[in-house]
């Protein structure tokens, strides 16, 4: 093939490749969006899970044409310009195999623009969804309206929550080797091994640890926050669907780390009210032995015979520092 005929054939190839890419991209995107998209993890149990699923689906719709474009071009080139085919261009290094500046610039410009737009999109989603279910530390930058008052009320023991209202429910998540427990400050501060949440409610998770670093990961809720000793890590979500979810520890925390999981439940507001008031009454004796509700509790040096564990500046057997106790003789 002469370079003249190769130049004449180029637009035909470009048109053909573009047409194949466009049709296949539209078909793949539509198939993904309508058939696979609604089933993508983590589901739509909460506002943050739903936004996570939507974000993933949007990213996939953007990425699929790029992926197909690369694959199709390679496939097209392998078939059309294979060396045994008569009249193909010269091998790499020949004039017809030289780069196409327009294609190269377009490729870089389009993909770079896509990446920049996705960065902006991701940032907006993070802000709009109040941290997107991730732990934001003790002073969240992005938070739902009214959460400061809800947290202040929870700490003061004056929080309220009722079915049908718009109250934010404050739940404290406590990690310890090797189990999660949960305190409900709005309901007397009782502590439970079960995480039960009401539907259609904004939840403020306040996550902390009594010993080493854990990580609270409620996968179907799309909530994930590190549990650090003496740190209150706050994350938000709003429940939208009834159902069960799994809570795991996602920070290697010791010999039974792999077993540090349990199951939570999103129930109707009426069912939640029944459970929470029943649990408050059932745990009253235990709640009386717990320390006053606080955002963090210092994991003190207590243990057999007490005070044997060097832990920095923590005073063994302090009344305020040890979770769950007013220590004798302090």
């Amino acid at each position: 093939m002469t370079s003249e005929s190769a130049t004449k054939a180029a637009p035909r190839h470009l048109r053909r490749v573009t047409l194949i890419w466009f049709v296949s991209s539209v078909v793949a995107d539509l198939l993904f969006w309508f058939l696979a998209g609604p089933h993508m993890p983590p589901g739509r149990m909460t506002s943050t899970a739903a936004s996570n699923q939507s974000d993933f689906n949007i990213l996939m719709v953007v990425a699929l044409p790029v992926l197909l474009g690369v694959w199709e071009f390679i496939l097209y080139a392998l078939i059309t310009w294979r060396s045994k085919r008569p009249g193909v261009p010269e091998p790499i290094g020949g004039p017809a195999a030289a780069g196409n500046q327009k294609v190269e610039v377009s490729w870089v410009a389009i993909t770079a623009t896509l990446v920049i737009l996705l960065v902006a999109f991701g940032t907006v989603e993070l802000i709009v969804n109040e941290g997107a279910g991730a732990g934001e530390g003790p002073n969240p930058i992005w938070q739902p309206a009214g959460v400061n008052q809800a947290e202040a009320n929870a700490l003061a023991g004056t929080g309220t929550w009722a079915p049908g209202g718009n109250d934010i429910l404050v739940v404290q998540v406590i990690g310890q080797q090797w189990e999660w427990t949960y305190r409900y400050p709005t309901f007397g501060g009782f502590e439970s091994q079960q995480l039960i949440l009401p539907n259609n409610t904004t939840i403020a998770f306040n996550v902390t640890s009594l010993d080493v670093i854990h990580s609270f990961w409620a996968y179907q809720l799309e909530v994930k926050a590190d549990a650090n000793p003496q740190v209150n890590d706050v994350a938000f979500t709003k429940t939208r669907q009834l159902g069960n979810f799994v809570v795991r520890c996602s920070e290697l925390c010791g010999i039974w780390h792999a077993d540090m999981y349990d199951y939570g439940k999103v129930v109707s507001p009426a069912a939640f009210l029944h459970w929470v008031t029943t649990s408050e009454a059932k745990n009253a004796a235990n709640t009386a032995d717990l320390p006053a509700f606080a955002w963090t509790y210092v994991p003190d040096a207590n243990g057999a015979a007490g005070g044997y564990y060097p832990d920095g500046n923590v005073t063994p057997y302090s009344r305020v520092e040890v979770y769950g106790s007013t220590q004798p003789g302090s």
């Binding site: 406590i174 310890q176 427990t181 502590e191 091994q193 009594l210 010993d211 235990n286 032995d289 717990l290 320390p291 994991p299 003190d300 207590n302 243990g303 057999a304 015979a305 007490g306 040890v322 979770y323 769950g324 106790s325 220590q327 004798p328």
Partner: peptide, 11 residues
């Protein structure tokens, strides 16, 4: 012999 719990929930 005994000592206090870290988390009195386990009482």
């Amino acid at each position: 012999t005994g000592s206090p719990l870290r988390n009195q929930k386990y009482g």
